[in-house]
Amino acid sequence: GGTLVLLLAGAALSSFAAALTALVLNLVPSPYASFEIMHWLMGSLTDRTFTHVWICLPGVVCGTLLMLSAGRALDALTLGEDVAESLGFRLHGVWGVQTRIVLGAALSVGSCVAVSGAIGFVGLVVPHLLRPLTGYQPSRLLVPSALGGSLLLLGADMVVRVASVGTELQLGVLTALVGAPVFFARVIMLKRTGS
């Protein structure tokens, strides 16, 4: 249906998810459970151990392998769907490129979010910042984006822990406060340059 339909569907889905979250918070019988939900929604690495790493590792490894397996097809997709299909890449279907990318991203990100909570804008900002360094090839951007996102997340966590006075600022709040303006600046720059 085009970009507008995709944006409207995303906005509707986001509003619906926010309403469900508010409903859960409204129906929670315990203030402690309400606090835990809010803490998870703001995202944090506080009190995370290697046990949490082992919990999310299988999903991250499987998801990363699925995305890496579609690297060359992503390069072909930069030329358009028709060109990618003419080069022999299967885009649709059970193990098509789209399925592997969506499933891989969902497994990787979902596993991490299950452990740390929602920490936004890392996956939006880092690839855009690193894209000029990788020659604008999506396949060459996958590994640097994962490493760059990890470094950004650890750096932000250190800032949160060092700069805390009294109540510690949650990591997801900091990444959203910094990431949203950076992302908007990047969008404006892309609109002006047309690339």
Rank of each mutant, 00 (worst) to 15 (best):
V60I: 15
A73T: 00
A70T: 03
I55A: 01
L66R: 01
V53C: 12
C56V: 04
D75K: 11
P58K: 07
L66Q: 00
A73D: 00
L79H: 15
L74F: 04
D75S: 12
A76P: 09
C56I: 04
A70D: 02
L57T: 07
L74C: 06
L65Q: 09
M67K: 06
A73E: 01
A70E: 02
L68N: 03
T49M: 11
T78F: 10
L74G: 01
H52M: 10
I55F: 03
T64R: 04
T78H: 11
A76W: 07
L77F: 11
V61N: 05
T64Y: 08
I55P: 00
L65P: 13
A70W: 01
L68F: 06
I55Y: 01
G59W: 04
W54M: 13
S69D: 09
L65K: 08
V53F: 12
L68C: 09
L79E: 15
V60C: 13
L65W: 10
L68R: 06
P58H: 02
V53N: 06
L68H: 04
R72C: 10
G63E: 00
F50N: 15
T78E: 15
L77V: 11
F50W: 15
L66N: 01
F50E: 15
T49E: 12
A73N: 02
A76I: 06
R72S: 13
L79A: 15
H52Q: 15
G59I: 05
M67A: 08
H52C: 10
A76M: 09
T64H: 04
T78L: 11
A73Q: 00
I55E: 02
L65T: 09
M67C: 14
T78P: 06
C62S: 12
V61F: 08
T78K: 14
A70Y: 02
L74R: 00
C56A: 03
A76K: 03
V61S: 05
V60F: 06
G59E: 04
T78I: 09
T49R: 14
T49I: 12
V60Q: 05
T51Y: 06
G63L: 00
G63H: 00
R72A: 14
T64L: 15
D75E: 11
L57E: 06
V60K: 05
L79N: 14
G71F: 00
P58M: 04
T51F: 09
I55Q: 00
T49H: 14
L66W: 01
C56D: 00
L57W: 07
C62D: 07
M67L: 13
V60S: 06
R48V: 13
V61T: 10
L77P: 09
L66D: 03
R48I: 08
V60P: 08
W54K: 04
P58I: 05
G59P: 06
